[in-house]
Amino acid sequence: MSLFNENTTVEDLLALKKSALQAYLKQKNRKISGTKLELAQRAFEVNKEDNVCMPTSSVSDAREKGSLSDTESRSNSHVSDTDIISVDSLNSGWTSDTKLFPQISHRDVEQYLIYSSHRTEDSGKMECYRQFIRGFNFYKEGYIHNIMVNLIEKDSKMCYIRSKCYPSMKQGTYTQWVCLSKEAPYTILKAYCSCPAG
């Protein structure tokens, strides 16, 4: 079975040798120069183009294919910008009970960091490939700790998840939080990290 299919992630492609990425891109008549990360990003986009299929009914399928815009994704989550409560106002209600965490997937995070239009300077796609890969690797390597959720109120349509991250090179910790919808289709609405990379 080919690695290049609808479930392929950037992380999968980075596990390949640079020569394998170049061979794939050459086969697709695409540029083969650049760093391994650039080649993986290019191969990821080409593979997505090859495997895009229009969903018939599932919103989550559309989001996984990167075919829903950020506005469409937000409207399907039934949460608007004006509904979002500031994380700074949540002085209580935090818990580490994992049973209360929304069942957000790796694909949901991919949708936010790569395809959503949350960039500060313009409305283009974020395309945060490096942050997506490094963040997931930090989690797998045990850098992330003190993960907690705040459901805000019972009838609230959104919640916050926050955590601490040990820096890979320095002492101390960074703080992260993500605001997301409580129910499927799970949509990341906002996110923040106190690290210098943002």
Rank of each mutant, 00 (worst) to 15 (best):
Q111Y: 07
F138L: 13
Q131R: 12
L14T: 06
L25I: 02
T187H: 01
S156D: 07
M54F: 05
S86T: 12
T9Y: 04
K31A: 09
F136P: 08
F138V: 10
H118Q: 02
I188P: 03
S60C: 06
I114E: 03
N29Y: 12
G66A: 03
F101K: 05
R107P: 03
S156P: 07
V87D: 03
L21A: 02
L13V: 10
W94A: 08
D50F: 02
Q131E: 12
T9P: 05
I84P: 02
S67Y: 05
C193P: 05
N7C: 11
I114L: 05
K154V: 14
R107V: 04
E183F: 03
C53R: 09
R107C: 07
E141Y: 05
S117N: 06
L90A: 02
N150M: 00
Q103N: 12
K17P: 09
K17T: 09
S75H: 13
T120M: 06
R162W: 08
L13D: 00
R30L: 04
F4S: 05
R74M: 13
P196G: 06
T71R: 13
T95H: 10
L189D: 02
A184V: 13
I147N: 11
Y192M: 14
S33C: 10
L13W: 06
L68R: 03
S168N: 06
E110A: 07
S181N: 15
T98N: 04
S116M: 14
F4A: 06
H78G: 02
H118F: 02
G135F: 03
P102G: 09
D122Q: 02
D83P: 04
E6W: 14
Y160E: 01
E127F: 13
E11H: 12
I133N: 02
F44Y: 07
Y192F: 15
S69N: 10
E72P: 13
S69I: 02
A15W: 00
K154R: 13
I152L: 11
Y174E: 03
G172F: 04
K18A: 06
L189N: 01
E72D: 09
S77G: 10
R162A: 11
